[in-house]
Amino acid sequence: METLKTNILIADDHSIVAGGIEAILNTAEHLNVIGVVDNGQKVLNTVAENQIDLVLLDINMPVMNGIECTKQLKAQYPDTKVIVITMYNRKQFIRELFEVQADGCILKSNSGKELLTAIERVISGKTYFDQLNDFIDAPREFKEFRLSEREIEIIELIAEGYTSKDIGTRLFISEHTVKTHRKNIFQKTNVGDSDELVKWAMNNKLIR
């Protein structure tokens, strides 16, 4: 008797990350990757045209981010499960994920085994938020550095490798504004360039 497979859609605009996730899923015979897309709107389009049981998606994507995508998915396709895979260990995102009724969340820094465990839990009808203790309340933790929410958001995008132009496009602000924020961030954190900033953010557990 053929094993019933779970159809999964991967949504991440980093091709290397998406490829790594797909490779992990391909190790499980009962998981079937339907496709890989790079933004939230494509997620909705793909789910509309295919039988998707579970969507694995990043929070920060162009066109439509993971939070808004999850909200619309749950409104239109309530039976489709959603697990958010993120590098942002921020409590703010967990609160937002609860609000839009995501079924789980896992940090990108975790192992493939952890991801498969999360998938098994969610497709069985449960939720997976086991890593809540790893999330921090960034605004309180970084008060001493006087970083604004916007500056923290830009740090996270810099850590993902985006240029000032890309960040401006994603946040709907000008490239000049992004560069001004970068200059202020460097001054507040006492770093000299983006590489030092990423190391600083990791050491202070803003990203993982």
Rank of each mutant, 00 (worst) to 15 (best):
residue 1 M to W: 08
residue 1 M to T: 12
residue 1 M to N: 11
residue 2 E to W: 11
residue 3 T to L: 14
residue 4 L to C: 01
residue 4 L to M: 13
residue 8 I to R: 09
residue 9 L to G: 08
residue 11 A to P: 04
residue 11 A to C: 09
residue 11 A to N: 02
residue 15 S to L: 14
residue 16 I to R: 05
residue 17 V to L: 05
residue 17 V to I: 14
residue 20 G to M: 10
residue 21 I to V: 15
residue 25 L to I: 11
residue 26 N to A: 05
residue 31 L to Y: 15
residue 36 V to S: 10
residue 36 V to G: 09
residue 36 V to D: 06
residue 38 D to F: 14
residue 42 K to I: 10
residue 44 L to S: 01
residue 45 N to W: 05
residue 47 V to Y: 02
residue 49 E to V: 03
residue 49 E to K: 07
residue 54 L to P: 01
residue 54 L to Y: 11
residue 55 V to N: 00
residue 57 L to I: 08
residue 62 P to L: 02
residue 65 N to W: 08
residue 66 G to P: 02
residue 67 I to F: 13
residue 68 E to P: 03
residue 71 K to E: 15
residue 72 Q to L: 15
residue 72 Q to W: 11
residue 73 L to Y: 05
residue 74 K to V: 02
residue 75 A to W: 03
residue 78 P to F: 13
residue 83 I to E: 06
residue 85 I to H: 10
residue 86 T to D: 08
residue 87 M to G: 02
residue 93 F to G: 00
residue 93 F to E: 08
residue 94 I to N: 12
residue 97 L to Q: 00
residue 97 L to V: 04
residue 100 V to S: 02
residue 101 Q to N: 13
residue 102 A to I: 04
residue 102 A to R: 09
residue 103 D to Q: 01
residue 106 I to P: 02
residue 106 I to M: 07
residue 108 K to F: 08
residue 114 E to C: 02
residue 114 E to A: 15
residue 116 L to H: 06
residue 119 I to N: 11
residue 120 E to H: 14
residue 122 V to G: 13
residue 126 K to Y: 12
residue 128 Y to Q: 04
residue 128 Y to D: 11
residue 130 D to L: 13
residue 131 Q to K: 12
residue 137 D to S: 06
residue 138 A to M: 14
residue 139 P to R: 02
residue 139 P to Q: 03
residue 140 R to V: 10
residue 144 E to P: 07
residue 145 F to P: 02
residue 148 S to Q: 09
residue 149 E to L: 12
residue 149 E to G: 01
residue 150 R to G: 08
residue 150 R to Q: 15
residue 150 R to I: 13
residue 152 I to N: 05
residue 153 E to D: 02
residue 153 E to G: 08
residue 155 I to P: 08
residue 156 E to S: 07
residue 158 I to A: 00
residue 163 T to Q: 10
residue 164 S to F: 03
residue 168 G to W: 09
residue 168 G to Q: 01
residue 169 T to N: 15
residue 170 R to A: 13
residue 170 R to N: 13
residue 172 F to I: 03
residue 173 I to V: 15
residue 174 S to L: 11
residue 175 E to V: 09
residue 175 E to W: 03
residue 176 H to Y: 06
residue 176 H to Q: 11
residue 177 T to V: 13
residue 178 V to T: 09
residue 181 H to P: 03
residue 182 R to Q: 14
residue 188 K to V: 06
residue 189 T to W: 01
residue 193 D to F: 07
residue 194 S to N: 15
residue 194 S to M: 05
residue 196 E to P: 03
residue 199 K to W: 05
residue 200 W to C: 01
residue 201 A to H: 00
residue 204 N to H: 12
residue 207 I to D: 01
residue 208 R to F: 15
